[in-house]
Design a binder for these strands. Structure first.
Length: 551
RNA sequence: UGGGGCGUCGCCAAGUGGUUAAGGCACCGGGUUUUGAUCCCGGCAUCGGAGGUUCGAAUCCUCCCGCCCCAGCCA
């Protein structure tokens, strides 16, 4: 234990205290997503927290699917979630767990509560139940079915289970307190009828447990000691405790809440993300603009960057909005440290070096990374014709050296990893557009300073015109134009950024990029971080996604 | 409005009666640099408000203000 001086969050403090006081022997946490959508960056914080806690205290963390509502759940989501958690670098104890594995146990616990006179079958319909519940300021009224004999409730529950009762006509409710100031305690629903196939249990069940009746018990079954969830569940804690203390459970878990992660210029709500996908505003759950784990992965963000970012986040009870820039900082840091360097010209402008022998080609060697010898060096063909970016040449010769560190007629510039060159003449087409630059190179300047008197304005990237590959680049911007897409009147969709995707075709990339594989990150020098897109790339056309621009 | 929770720099935050009120992001200066990147130096708050307790308070008390969550047979 060398991390004693590390500041700890309130949950770590609670766990330490529990361990010291022998209230718990081994720490067990869990990450409990409902398989009704893909995981997003907000889940990543919870994943890092829960798995991190288990790791830190030498305990275990379960991956558990809270699949208590077949209506919105699907195995597609289960598989995607498993893949995402693995990708983030975490592993869980044993096999993934499912709430649906405990349906039988939950059912008998429901029978137990009925037997104890603490639950009853209610025949109020949804509308009436709402009315009986009261409001924030008015207490509720007892259901007319509240004092029904246990035997009757037991029989009705069995009928509900068998499918003999219509949906919406009966529920099993906990008998707690209709006058409680906490609305969650006003006889909450434990079971409702849903005659619907479940992605795992098929049509075995016609009734399904509610979140409140399931969660604490799932935790207890698994021996979870610290059940960490987000703030909005704080009001459910008394109910969580009511069930854990009124049922003969194998253990008594405790619930703690922390603030959910919010990031500006994005939305982190499964419902909204699903809407973006369903209404085709994006290319799917893994669209590189999505804050989903799969979207970030396709975008080129590394798992390490996501983890570092999450670890930088406070685990507290405040509900703030983290600046996107903070996330981007960790993305850039990791990519800067690990991405191989390469050159790619987005908007090619040909330069012919008049004093370079026609037909000659030499192979220059460039470092794979400025300060990492372990990354392989690159072979760069160099010849009489090269491409530079249009934005790296200006006809305005009055621009100061400080303001424009690029190519200008009559002046010099260093081609990164290659020669110092000079621009001599501009060639135009009939429309007056610049189509080519005639220039010259300064011999013996590869890896060497140019002779006295020649002062390059700067360093620009380039690519051999006769020996390069074509590719398309997908540049991404924020999906939303507003920092808080959710705020204000209308829909968050009103703030979709029409320029969130810009495709640049026919870019010229250095030869080595032809061997790029999906998921491999590169820094296109002076441009940004990119990675090959497995979905859009084909044998004859490579597509790179821009993960993020350089600062 | 009843209940629950929260308010420390532009953003995220540490702080648990005595510290020059950490740190990160952002921003602004300056240096290095064959990426206008990286890197390196430097700058950047008196703690929602008002009272009070105390030798001493961001930390304790009182009142006030503001924000978030709960009235699904969602999770």
């Amino acid at each position: 234990m060398t991390d004693i001086e590390k500041p700890s969050n309130f949950i770590q403090q609670i766990i330490s205290a529990d361990l010291d006081a022998n209230r718990v022997e081994t720490v067990v946490t869990r990450f409990p997503p409902e398989p009704n959508g893909y995981l997003h960056i907000g889940h990543a914080k919870s994943i890092c927290l829960n798995f991190g806690l288990a790791e830190q205290f030498n305990g275990a963390c379960n991956l558990r699917f809270d699949d208590t509502n077949p209506e919105k759940e699907d195995d597609e989501y289960v598989q995607a979630i498993i893949e995402d958690v693995k990708w983030l670098g975490f592993d869980w104890a044993d096999e993934p767990k499912f709430a649906s594995d405990y349906f039988g146990q939950l059912y008998s616990w429901a029978q137990y509560l009925i037997g104890e006179g603490k639950a009853y079958i209610c025949e109020l319909n949804a509308e009436d139940m709402r009315e009986y519940r009261g409001t924030l300021t008015e207490v509720g009224k007892n259901s007319p079915y509240r004092e029904r004999p246990a035997e009757e409730s037991l029989a009705l529950l069995e009928q509900m289970k068998q499918g003999a009762v219509d949906e919406g006509t009966m529920t099993l409710r906990a008998k707690i307190d209709m006058a409680s100031p906490n609305i969650n305690m006003r006889d909450p629903v434990m079971y409702r009828i849903k005659k619907m196939a479940h992605h795992r249990t098929g049509d075995t069940w016609n009734i399904y447990p509610s979140y409140d009746f399931a969660h604490g018990q799932e935790d207890a079954i698994e021996g979870v000691t610290h059940s960490v969830c987000t703030l909005e569940f704080a009001a459910n804690r008394p109910l969580y405790e009511w069930f854990t203390s009124n049922l003969p459970l194998p253990s008594v878990p405790r619930q703690y809440e922390f603030g959910r992660l919010n990031i500006n210029y994005t939305v982190t709500s499964k419902r909204k993300l699903k809407q973006l996908v369903d209404e085709k505003h994006v290319d799917g759950w893994d669209d590189p603009r999505m804050p989903t784990i799969s979207g970030l992965r396709r975008r080129g963000v590394t798992a390490a960057a996501v983890r570092e970012f999450c670890d930088s986040l406070a685990v507290a009870k405040t509900d703030g909005v983290v600046d996107l820039a903070q996330f981007e900082h960790f993305i850039r840091t990791d990519l800067n440290d690990n991405a191989s360097r390469a050159m790619c010209v987005l908007n090619p402008l040909k330069i012919t070096l008049s004093n370079y022998e026609a037909g000659k080609e030499e192979i220059l060697t460039a470092a794979g990374h400025p300060n990492r010898d372990d990354l392989p060096s690159r072979q760069l063909p160099f010849g009489r014709e090269i491409y530079i970016d249009q934005s790296d040449f200006s006809e305005d010769t009055t621009l100061s050296r400080k303001k424009f560190k690029r190519l200008v007629i009559g002046e010099y510039v260093r081609l990164r990893g290659a020669y110092v060159i000079r621009a001599d003449e501009v060639i135009r087409d009939d429309a007056g557009e610049i189509v080519e630059i005639i220039g010259s190179y300064v011999p013996d300047t590869v890896g060497e300073n140019p002779p006295e008197g020649i002062r390059p304005r700067g360093v620009i990237h380039w690519v051999s015109a006769s020996n390069c590959i074509d590719c398309d680049l997908y540049l991404y911007e924020n999906l939303f134009t507003e920092a808080a897409p959710d705020a204000g009147e209308g829909s968050f969709l009103d703030h979709l950024n029409p320029q969130s995707l810009q495709i640049i075709k026919n870019c010229k990339a250095e030869l080595g990029l032809g061997e790029a594989v999906a998921g491999q990150q590169y820094q296109f020098e002076r441009e940004g971080y990119y990675c090959l897109d497995g979905k859009h790339s084909s044998a004859d056309k490579l597509v790179f996604n821009r993960t993020i621009a350089l600062r």
